[in-house]
């Protein structure tokens, strides 16, 4: 039973990280109908920024709490800047192009950013400083759930809550929902749609940066390619839950995380992807719009 709970917790942690990334995919898709393949790279850049800032601050011997806060803020700002810029140079000029064009542009951006980090940094795995200490109060359950798992779960839960409140109640959140529903009408009621789209990329990147910081600290090493794998998984999770739907992205991520974790634990880690993607295929056959997605009727 302990083993089951352990797998369950590690699955949740995985799912939480996927969710932080998947939200970026689903929000961007919801608003401009584009699969932003460069989103995984934004997460990777978040992890690298965290690595650089955290390492430098550790060398100068700053207290851990200060390091975590400064690292988090720098990663968020830096990733958002990348997300914003990618949208401006790779997608905005293609706003009225056929749908495949920005998709190719997104794939190009993804490859470009990976190689840029590869060249500017290194192809080696870099050891990430341990930012999350082992909490004393977690001692009795440490064999089931680690301190960093707990931090990841709590941070993700808070992020989701804030995002939900943001989308539901703020001026910008309402404008995002309106733009997602009817872009032309949003323009006509005076919403600066370009700015709303930029804001969507910024918010998505911010969440991805938090994910990057958390996972890097959890796993303890990073390299330039982590964004690709995580991006594909998070994208899968978003599709699983129904792309364009925010609760769907979270649900899909948790299901994906749990499936992988149980597959690893009870079968073999070689099969985690097999199970994850079999599940995706199955759900898409039974429910093509994803678990919480709206059945697409297409715009007339």
């Amino acid at each position: 039973m302990d083993y089951f709970i352990e797998l369950f917790c590690s699955g949740l942690t995985r799912g939480a990280i996927y969710a932080l990334i998947a939200l970026g995919y689903t929000m961007v898709y919801g608003i401009i109908g584009l699969i932003n393949f460069a989103h995984g790279e934004i997460y990777m850049i978040g992890a690298f920024t965290s690595f650089i800032v955290a390492t430098v601050l550790s060398i100068y011997g700053f207290p851990l709490a200060a390091i975590v806060v400064v690292t988090g803020i720098s990663a968020a700002i830096w990733s958002s800047a990348y997300g914003y810029t990618v949208e401006k140079i790779a997608y905005k000029p293609l706003r009225n192009a056929p749908r495949l064009t920005p998709l190719i542009s997104a794939i190009g951006m993804s490859i470009l950013l990976q190689n840029y980090v590869l060249l500017a940094q290194t192809s080696d795995f870099l050891p990430f400083p341990e930012l999350i200490p082992e909490f004393a109060f977690m001692e009795p359950v440490a064999h089931i759930i680690g301190s960093s798992d707990l931090v990841i779960l709590v941070t993700t839960a808070i992020s989701m809550l804030l995002l939900t409140l943001f989308i539901k109640f703020t001026r910008l959140g309402k404008a995002m929902r309106a733009t997602a529903q009817d872009k032309t009408m949003a323009l006509l009621v005076g919403i600066n749609v370009d700015r709303v789209i930029s804001a969507t990329f910024i918010v998505g990147s911010l969440l991805a940066a938090i994910g990057g910081l958390l996972i890097a600290s959890h796993i303890g090493q990073i390299n330039f390619a982590i964004g690709f794998i995580a991006g594909i998984k998070a994208f899968t999770a978003a599709v699983l839950g129904g792309i364009g739907s925010i609760p769907g992205a979270v649900l899909g991520s948790l299901i994906l995380g749990l499936t992988e974790s149980f597959a690893t634990g009870y079968v073999s880690s070689d099969y985690e992807d097999v199970f994850a993607f079999s599940l995706l295929v199955l759900i898409l056959i039974l429910k093509p719009a994803g678990l919480l997605g709206r059945a697409g009727t297409g715009k007339v």
Binding site: R171, V189, G190
Partner: peptide
Amino acid sequence: LENVMIGRHCRTRSLIFGA
């Protein structure tokens, strides 16, 4: 109510910082 509030968007200013 939200539909009408959306109409106020262009007369109001707060962005991510405000949120």
